[in-house]
Nucleic acid binder design. Structure first.
Lengths: 268, 268
DNA sequence: GACAAGAACACGGA
DNA sequence: CTCCGTGTTCTTGT
């Protein structure tokens, strides 16, 4: 599922492509993904120009003239994809937005996902309450953030209200690089461990962004990223051997998620 | 407030004095301390003989013929005291129980406290859910107990559902002797720290029992114990100097309770 | 003991 | 953990 790097890439591509375009029409095939009546989308979007796009954790925000915003969450395996004039969006599209120049973008979802319209001045609980962006954060702030919390480190990092954008794909490599067990208690982390964690988060997310994000997801132009399993030391390795130390790797349950760890590099 | 050592001493004195005596009457001056209608006490206790007494954390349990039990909690600064035939209980008594031989005991309270009557087969949530007795526990069990919990060590030790009988008086010396800061997180305790803590609990509580318990409380015969502030390294020391290392002592807030610590011997 | 806040967990639902 | 509710239970802190 798309996480921070994918959304950073998609938002950047949108930002390069869409500002200035004027909405011509919106077609919705899956009304249950909306946060308000379908008519509102038809009423408020057409005629508005795109001002810009930016990532918000696992969401992307499209800003329009007048202050309205479209907030998109791709859920599991969703895709937002641009199409040129004359191109046809695929059959499976759950949402199609066209601009007056004939271009547009479609969204596909294979499970859940959201296309929320938020009007100027309105609140949006799901993105208003996101924790800070890990890449826009100094170590001191990260350290402070951890000091205010107890419990295991993994659920904390996955909680979008604590820190935005990390999901169960990248966290596996992050915790491996930091040398931390997912169930390590936050209050037990030493300053050095926090530093390693902070740096691992930056390194993993930035590496992926640099490579165009995950090879399992498609970007705004339908291209795969180049950050694949070959970048991951332990995640989804069926061979059961840590490429760093040669020890056994294991798949363990951590709350509702599963995770691969190296029993040697990531001890409790 | 009477804690485990006081209750151990009182229960032992009751056990030496009361078994075999038959209740003649019960007089209650503070019905809000009861768990059931006052009439029940009058109806069920007179005519019954005492079988025995035992401490339950900060409670003392008096068992009667037929399985009824009287559970007494002295709250803050309460007192249970025996009187001989012909002696008069003080004016301030909130509860008086006399035996057919003319002896009896009275209870005084100055804040909260309980005199609960529990009939055979009934449950009593406040004592049924007490944690284990720290003096009847092996280190392994104590270690296991800690493994199941998060949060600071002091609130844990004060929580009667985790471990019974420790209050804010003895814990100060316990944590000092263990060299632990009250806000130390349980998951961060090393095996050695847990061992020190376990031993400090035993040493402090047993020392006090040996000396007849706290010099601030009265036992079942109205006598003061000999465990006083002179036994405590840092608690309530206004001079601000640790007698062990000479460092500064401090009074800090730990949740709802205050605590004296030595800043050198008890670091986070 | 009242009360809030956070953490874990189990649902069902979109 | 995708996010939302709904609960409960525990634990901490005030």
């Amino acid at each position: 599922m798309p996480e921070l790097p994918e959304l950073v890439v998609i938002a950047e591509q949108m930002q390069q492509t869409l500002p200035g375009k004027e909405v011509a029409s919106v077609t919705i095939f899956q009304p249950k993904c909306l946060n308000r009546p379908e008519e509102d989308y038809q009423r408020y979007l057409p005629g508005k120009r795109v001002l810009g796009a930016r990532p918000l954790g696992k969401w992307v925000e499209l800003g329009f003239q007048g202050g309205d915003r479209l907030l998109v969450n791709l859920g599991m395996g969703g895709e937002v994809c641009y199409f040129k004039k004359g191109e046809e969006p695929p059959e499976k599209s759950k949402w199609i937005l066209t601009f007056t120049d004939g271009t547009g973008f479609f969204i596909t979802l294979w499970w859940f996902g959201y296309m929320h319209l938020v009007r100027k001045g309105e609140t949006h609980p799901m993105t208003d309450t996101l924790g800070p962006d890990p890449l826009a954060m100094a170590f001191d702030a990260f350290n402070k953030l951890l000091e205010g919390h107890r419990g295991s480190i993994k659920p904390f990092l996955l909680n979008q209200k604590c820190i935005r954008g990390i999901g169960n794909f990248y966290i596996q490599e992050i915790l491996f690089q930091a040398g931390l067990h997912p169930l390590k208690e936050i209050p037990c982390l030493s300053k050095e461990e926090k530093k390693r964690l902070f740096q691992a988060i930056r390194r993993v997310l930035e590496d992926s962004i640099t490579l165009g994000s995950s090879s399992y997801e498609l970007d705004f132009f339908g291209a795969k990223g180049r950050y694949g399993l070959d970048r991951m030391a332990v995640a989804y390795r069926e061979d059961g051997v840590c490429p760093v130390c040669g020890s056994k790797t294991e798949k363990i349950k951590t709350g509702s998620t599963a995770q691969f760890i190296c029993i040697q590099c990531q001890q409790l």
